[in-house]
Design a binder for these strands. Structure first.
Lengths: 336, 336
DNA sequence: CTGTTAGCGCCTTCAG
DNA sequence: CTGAAGGCGCTAACAG
């Protein structure tokens, strides 16, 4: 008494053809006369036939699912990277299964294990730091894998992103050039966000290489949200002393920090300089343009998806693609 | 020469038991001695056994996937609703397949059709307005369905959300009480976002019922992002004349609008009142608290997921759950 | 162009 | 507690 729903068997019976003909008609492959195909599709529709992807995937031994792992949804950056990728994938007939890890490597590993049970056509991970098992499993399963947002010379499979350390360095250099001497950084706790850590390293290096080396003070706790975290970071720094320039993990934190500066009576950039990251939408409406670095989020998604599609189809592509960033000299830092 | 990968058959051979015993051991169901179970799990791990969800879903005729349809990722509101739901679902062992519709009903319909091929355990849609086919297909497939963020007395299955019309009315009433007389609204083009449209209706009704009825001017084009759209809306309104209060689709648009007001030399609230919606994180760091309405996004997700889980398990729940909003009397509108 | 055969990997059912 | 038989819906491979 199983078989309640309608499958290609029911359609085949109704159309008085074999299941294979129905299968071919529905998939749109060659080998069915146009007349029959039309008739079959008509009947399938009438019968409310719904294909069963599980059966199909089982038979063809893979699926049209792309598994994606993101740190969080609560960040425009990932939303934009995602948007960039999805357009390309949709067009190619893939659906995405997404999970967020909240920056936990263990969580990422569990998700990848889970993903593999679905025999995805490809997997996309954020960043290049993963538990060792992750890359190993993906490789041995032979699944095309894209690491996005950060780059390495030795990706699991392919990667597309920006060089965060270099980006930090560029921002740091710029600040050094402007003559800043007591820098501070407000971000997440070290170890939580590897890309942010890399940028901080770049900033540090810039100041180390400056005319005279300046230590950089670091603040940052895991906060509810970016705006609040930026504000809290400034509060924390000011308890001790006033830095002359503060680098923030991103523009939203920078904005929160600027608001906090206002509360403390500090003028920007006269009393304190502010540097953000990403050039997020928010910055376009502010009366004072923030000094920041523009990151090609959407483009990254597009390029990543395109390369990954190529990999799925067995075409060789660049293993590592590094996209450029653009320094934006705003007015939240002193003039040159 | 098929059967390259290791399945329960290979594990069974290695453990010298039947496939059924392996199946039971792995699923953790009763009927296997603890000794054997441990041994089987050990061997499975050694062999790098990866379960095949497609086969499992085919056999049991449903999956542990929950299909989700969101208008967009580029909006904190949906990110938070999602976060609220995911915690609950993860815990229960479900994975989510997500797609965004960019506010297109046709796109939503295609996605639902696609989802159904995966035999999902449940489906979650945003809002209560769908093409007729959507509800019909979901119902006839007997899939538990949650409509979230908006409510109706007649959901496809169950719904959890807020009453947007009432929310708009409440904000409108408040403005009427404060004596505002030439209101304007900045949002998306009518028809694009049904919830926003409902709120606008509520605002209108409040002004219609006021001491003397005041027409409300409406501005809004589909813009790249919320901040810019808010600013553009103000620019558009001011070309004609200055309203005394402007309602925005959400706080981010309101902020963009406030920045634009600054550009035009308008003081808030002396020259123009500003009302937002949602009480987004951004508002917590602004020096001037925005008049807005706090919406229970996270809670909505949690309650929705919980009710949906109940439905999946066949437990009866409320069909419609309406959550309350909280009016926040900020300082972007004149005092009472 | 159309049909037949034999699985895909796992689980339900029923028999020991 | 364990195993054998058969099926889930679909498709590759091979006939005609």
């Amino acid at each position: 008494m199983r078989r309640s729903s309608v499958g290609i068997r029911e359609v085949a019976e109704a159309a008085k053809v074999s299941m294979m003909t129905v299968s071919r008609a529905i998939r749109g492959v060659e080998g069915v006369s146009e007349k029959k195909r039309a008739e079959i599709l008509r009947i399938a529709k009438k019968l409310n036939y719904v294909p069963n992807s599980n059966a199909r995937s089982l038979a063809v031994e893979n699926s049209n699912l792309v598994g994606i792992s993101l740190p969080t949804f609560a960040n425009d950056v990932f939303a934009e990277i995602l948007a960039g990728m999805r357009g390309t994938f949709e067009g190619a007939g893939y659906a995405s299964v997404i999970d967020t890890t909240e920056y936990s490597p263990e969580s990422e590993q569990r998700w990848v294990e889970r993903l593999l049970t679905w025999r995805p056509a490809a997997v996309i991970l954020t960043g290049i730091d993963h538990l060792p098992d992750v890359g190993q499993k993906l490789r041995s399963a032979g699944i095309p894998t894209l690491e996005i947002w950060d780059v390495t010379a030795d990706p699991i499979d392919i990667c597309v992103g920006i060089d965060h350390e270099a980006a930090g360095y560029e921002l740091g250099r710029y600040a050094v050039t402007l003559g800043y001497q007591s820098p501070a950084y407000v971000g997440a706790p070290i170890g939580r966000d590897r890309r942010a850590d890399a940028r901080l390293r770049g900033i540090k290096r810039a100041f180390d290489e400056g005319p005279c080396s300046h230590p950089i003070r670091v603040a940052g706790r895991p906060e509810r949200h970016a705006f609040g975290a930026g504000a809290a970071g400034i509060d924390e720094l000011l308890q001790e002393s006033r830095p002359d320039v503060v680098f923030f993990l991103n523009d939203h934190m920078a904005f929160g920090g600027m608001m906090a500066c206002g509360r403390h009576g500090l003028r920007i950039p006269q009393d304190i300089g502010v540097v953000g990251f990403n050039a997020l939408d928010l910055t376009t409406v502010l009366p004072v343009p923030i000094t920041t670095a523009k990151t090609p989020r959407r483009q990254m998604g597009v390029v990543g998806a395109r390369n990954l599609l190529a990999r799925i189809h067995g075409v060789a592509t660049e293993r590592t693609t590094t996209l450029p960033i653009t320094l934006i000299a705003g007015e939240t830092t002193r003039g040159e």
